[in-house]
């Protein structure tokens, strides 16, 4: 589409499906450019060349936006919450809080004020981010391109398809697990779990070999499970977006199915967080 509109912005054009998908997978990345200056990467090569000290502006922007959206809503409700007859909004928020509370009660057996809010934040935030997957794949990037007046702008709309975001959650949970393990069991108790389980002290090396990877696998699996599911889901949306008119029923079908996935993944992340933190709070039974 070459017809430029009055603002001089023309719709992005892609020469091939590969390019379309590759472009949709690119991030709006801020970091040090090859020439030494700091700025937004304009090509995927430039983005890849940036080191660790760079940031995905799109992921962070969407993540914070969605975070403020749901937390603002919750805060708004909690300001005028009543124990009398709740309104529709309060009802919805209460439903979520109660769902989280029930799950925490049935899975987490120690006492910790943090777990409820943590689980609630994880579930709602991840759900909101996953929900962006259901917005038609081109809308948000196109909107960003129009705003920036740059039809080549990279913009990734679903933060949970960015492994950094999911890893950020997982890392935070992992740190909490270590913190509470050490706090509840002491450093010795915590390390002892690696050394003396599951086979007792005479199999110490074997224990270490078994326990340390399984411990480290927790955050990795947490991050990659969510990332993988969302990434694959979005990829399918992109592929569907390239099949022409038939994409409409296909999009619908996949979106309906995807509603299940995004809810399930958010729920799973929350439940696993609760389970891991419960393990951090309880001593394993003696073998």
């Amino acid at each position: 589409m070459a017809d430029a509109n009055t603002t001089g912005f023309s719709l992005p054009e892609y020469e091939s499906g590969t390019e379309y998908i590759a472009h949709h997978l690119g991030f709006l990345k801020y970091g040090q450019l090859p020439n030494g200056s700091w700025g937004i990467a304009h090509t995927i090569e430039e983005a890849d060349a940036m080191g660790f000290w760079s940031i995905h502006v799109d992921s962070m922007l969407m993540s914070l936006l969605l975070g403020f959206m749901f937390m603002g809503l919750f805060y708004f409700v909690s300001r005028k919450v009543t124990s009398g007859i709740p309104g529709g909004l309060q009802n919805a928020v209460e439903f979520l809080v109660e769902m989280v509370q029930t799950n925490v009660k049935s899975t987490f057996f120690a006492r910790n004020e943090l777990i409820g809010p943590l689980a609630l934040t994880i579930f709602c935030w991840i759900f909101m981010m996953n929900l962006m997957d259901l917005v038609p794949v081109d809308w948000i990037p196109l909107f960003a391109q129009v705003v920036a007046q740059d039809n080549h702008l990279y913009f990734k709309a679903v933060p949970t398809t960015d492994v950094n975001i999911t890893a950020g959650f997982a890392l935070s949970v992992f740190i909490l697990v270590i913190f509470y393990s050490v706090k509840i069991k002491g450093l010795g108790g915590f390390l002892g779990e690696f050394a003396f389980h599951p086979f007792g002290k005479w199999a110490l090396p074997l224990n270490l070999v078994m326990e340390i990877p399984s411990f480290l696998a927790k955050p990795v699996s947490l991050a990659l499970r969510l990332y993988g599911n969302m990434f694959a889901g979005e990829m399918i949306f992109m592929v569907i977006a390239m099949v022409g008119l038939f994409q409409l029923p296909l999009h619908f079908a996949w979106a309906v199915f995807h509603i299940l996935i995004i809810t399930l993944q958010a729920y799973l992340f929350m439940m696993l967080t609760i389970v891991y933190l419960n393990q951090a709070h309880t001593k394993p039974e003696a073998h």
Binding site: K29, G31, D48, M50, G51, F52, W53, S54, I55, H56, S59, M60, S63, L64, G67, T121, W125, D162, V163, N164, I165, A167, G168, F169, L171, S172
Partner: peptide, 14 residues
């Protein structure tokens, strides 16, 4: 899959 400072930003925001 490239890890970068986004992970820190997200952790802090979280």
């Amino acid at each position: 899959m490239n890890l970068n400072a986004t992970i820190l930003g997200q952790s802090i925001a979280f």
